[in-house]
Amino acid sequence: MLIDPVTLVVALIIASTPVLLAAIGELVVEKTGVLNLGVEGMMIVGAVTGFIVAVETGSVTLAYLAGMAGGMVLSALFAILTQVLLSNQVATGLALTLFGIGLAALLGVGYPGSTPPRVPDIFPQALQDIPIAGPILFGHSAMIYLAVMLVATVWYVLQHTRTGLILRAVGESHDAAHALGYKVIRIRILAILFGGACAGLGGAFLSVARVQNWIEGMTVGAGWIALALVVFASWKPWRVLFGAYLFGGISALQLRLQAAEVNVPVALLDSSPYVVTIIVLVLISSDRARAALNAPASLGKVFHASG
């Protein structure tokens, strides 16, 4: 057999985690009515800061924290521009990505090829040796499980807590939320920072745990795919998980097909994750009623309290 299904599933889970982390953060941001197109920029800055700290300190935990910090610093810029200075969110998000890619490349000069510390698995070897279920369920580092727990937490908070209700209210109608006395700007800034931390963490996982190297421009569109996943998931956390696994599955599969040298053009395999993302976006958007129902009503609109 060309491709072992168990290793494929393991690879799928690892490949999907950076996108999953970034997408779940962006979902929260969009739920509060803010469209941050800078995910790609925040991810790549997180990837480089995480990698630098991993190499310099040898600590994976510190590396993840540094990745979060890197993403957050960039998202803070976005927050100041869009929430305080009321700039256009689309343009500012693009600026964040363009700036982030340049900044990350600048910070990472001299780091390609460095070796980060090994990321430990958390379950004992005995569990990992169980056939099939072992490698799939127990064969990962802590971040894989944390990412899934983060999805569960975001789902619970948004759906079942007062905080979630306020977040959603701000995203559905910022004027009504403002009239009720909620601090729209403050809530949105916090959500943007959370999104930045998630994207940065996703980037750090990519460089430190998955690729274990720093390569300029290494996110190759993962941030944009994360944005697409949020739309694909109709702003529902569990569907983000599903979408991320779908994307991860295709990435993992196409890499294996390339390694197995099957008779399919490389260009087609290379572009398959992007093409599939586009196809899925089309399928989701063509369902008019559902797309309109689920998008936060104030998404991307500037809030300016008058009086």
């Binding site: 795919i225 697409a228 586009i278 976006l281 958007s285 063509s286």
Partner: peptide, 11 residues
């Protein structure tokens, strides 16, 4: 299909 042109053009 009302697909977001930002994401599609970029991808």
């Amino acid at each position: 299909f009302r697909t977001n042109e930002i994401l599609v053009s970029l991808l």
